[in-house]
Design a protein around this nucleic acid. Sequence first.
DNA 1: ATGTCAGCTGAAAGCTGA
Length: 262
Amino acid sequence: MSFTIATWNINSVRLREGLVQRLLKEESPDILCLQECKCPVEKFPLDAFRALGYGHFVARGQKGYNGVAILSRLPLREVGAFDFARLNHARHVAAELENGVVIHNFYVPAGGDVPDREVNEKFGQKLDYVAAMRDWAWKERPRRSILVGDLNIAPREDDVWSHKQLLKVVSHTPVEVEHLGAAQEAGGWVDITRQDIPEGQLYSWWSYRSPNWDAADKGRRLDHVWATPDIASAAHSSRILREARGWEKPSDHAPVFATFDL
DNA sequence: ATGTCAGCTGAAAGCTGA
C-alpha cells in the first residue's frame, strides 16, 4: 500500500477549520498530523473533516495552548501519548495503522526568547523535552515508525535563512541542534524531507512579524518528517506546501508532506 | 527592541505565548 502523510502546525484549528478543509480537499493526504490546535479534544471541529472522508481521529488537547491531532482516512488505533519533561502539556499523541506502522505526532516546546536555561525556564524545558525524546527512543528502539511534527528546531545551516544570524536565536542554537541530533541518532531516525531534498535552503515557517514573508524569505525548517531505517527507503515525494503560508489568514507554518510505499 | 498573531480573562484592553 501507499499513503501520504502531512504535518502542519495550524495555530488554532477552530480559527482555521476552513484552511484544514482546503488542504484536505486540494492535497488529500491520507493522514494529517496537526499541532497547536489550541482547544480541548471535545471542542475539536471534527464534522467537516469527517464529511471529507477523514473518519479516524486521535488527539490530545488543552484549553488555549498546544494540542496535537491525527486525522486519517485510514483506520487508526491510538497507542498512547507522552508527557515528556512532565510539563502536563498536550504535545504528543501516537497511533498505529493496520499495517503496523506507528505514527508519532509531536509539538516540541518553542523555548522562549533567551537561549539560556539559567534565566529562561522555557528554554530548559525545551532541552529537557528533546532529551526525553532521545531517552525514549534509546530505550524503545522504535521500528516501522514515523515521527512528525513541529520540532521547533531547524538543525541544518540550510534550514534557516541565515545560519550566522540565527546562531543565538532560539530554534537554531548549537545546544538545541545538538539535542535534536542526539534524539534523532538514538532512534536511528532518518530525516525523510532531507533524504528526498538533500540540497538547498528549505523552510516550513515564516514569522508573522515579517511583513513581506515571501519576498524577504526569512524562513526556518521547524517542521519535520522522520522515519525509522526499516521503512525510510519506502519514502519519497517529500515537499513543503509553501503556498499555504500565503492563504487567507494563514498559519505561520506550511504543511510538510511525504509518501510511503509499504 | 522591533514586528504580528491567537486565546484567555471578564466584559476592554492587557497579558502570555509563539
